[in-house]
Amino acid sequence: MLYIKCPHCGLRSQNEFSYGGDATVKRPELNKEISDQDWDNFVYLRKSPRGKHLELWQHISGCRQWIKVERDTLTHEIFKTLKANEEL
């Protein structure tokens, strides 16, 4: 069982959260010239590191806020959690 410290609600079990994927991919800015490669990078390409991974979770059975979690993908240790609009 993972225990995730929601920045809004405190330490809660993984059952209350749903996963949202890699938090480091950035959607290309609107109203700008965007290459196909930029879209490809955003939509499809993932680093998927073994080790520290910054990812999105939603506290879906709690405050329903999206949050960022820095977690180790091998040991599942959670180093840090942030509000969705905060940077690491």
């Binding site: 069982m1 993972l2 079990s13 993984q14 996963y19 073994r50 990812e55 993908t73 091998l74 040991t75």
Partner: peptide, 13 residues
């Protein structure tokens, strides 16, 4: 399990 993982062992939930 639903989140990126390299651990080769599972989680009970």
């Amino acid at each position: 399990d639903g989140y990126n993982s390299y651990s080769q062992r599972g989680n009970l939930p």
